[in-house]
């Protein structure tokens, strides 16, 4: 048995970083288990309103399931003649980016033994809608730019916090999905 020294104040951001690091090492040995498939299903309701359900995914070589089915909705606001039952899907993209980067900050902080006190973010997606309306062929459909502003309170220097935020971008799936091209195959029938 070894004697371990307990630090005066244990850093706890609610992230089990030891488990994440162990998973990384295990998946290097069994790379096929690292191949995940994320799933969502969607159903049109009326007008621009639709409902998405997320429950199952594949990973670690088998079917996986969330502890319950999660439901998201999408709609357009009244100024687009929508019924505004739910956020627009582009806003959900911003929410997904915030969720991903924030999770990354917590995980990296845990791994670097930095205690977080609060992490808040404000996101703005710059979007010229002439693109989706077909009003100007030079304007793209998607965001022209996204600004993310984080406020992080933590037991760390300004530089350490900047490094946390930078590292979370480096390891973010949604940041990658938004900043890099992805092949999207759409089929019907």
């Amino acid at each position: 048995m070894t004697i371990t020294e307990t630090p005066a104040a244990e850093v706890d951001n609610g992230v089990n970083s030891d488990a994440l690091l162990a998973a990384r090492d295990q998946l290097r040995e069994a790379p096929e288990a690292a191949e995940f498939v994320w799933r969502a299903t969607s159903e049109w309701k009326s007008g621009t309103h639709s409902v998405q359900t997320i429950e199952h995914f594949d990973g670690l070589g088998t079917d996986q399931q969330h502890k319950s089915a999660y439901v998201l909705e999408g709609d357009h606001p009244a100024i687009f003649a929508g019924s505004d039952e739910a956020p627009t899907p582009v806003e959900t993209v911003l929410a997904a980016l915030a969720g991903c980067l924030t999770a990354g900050i917590a995980a990296v902080a845990q791994n670097r033994k930095i205690q977080l006190h609060s992490v808040t973010a404000t996101l703005e997606g710059k979007h010229n809608i002439l693109g989706i309306l077909g009003g100007d062929p030079d304007v793209r459909n998607g965001f022209n730019e996204i600004d993310v502003h984080f406020d992080v309170k933590a037991d760390a220097t300004e530089e350490e916090i900047a490094a946390l935020v930078a590292q979370s971008q480096k390891r973010s799936a949604v940041f990658d999905a938004l900043t890099n091209p992805t092949t999207v195959n759409v089929s019907v029938g």
Partner: peptide, 23 residues
Amino acid sequence: GMIRDGVALFSGGLANVTRLADL
């Protein structure tokens, strides 16, 4: 990230990689 129809597509995450390198 990709070359699609002869067009090279680059990541929009440039600012972060330069920031990481400076840090």
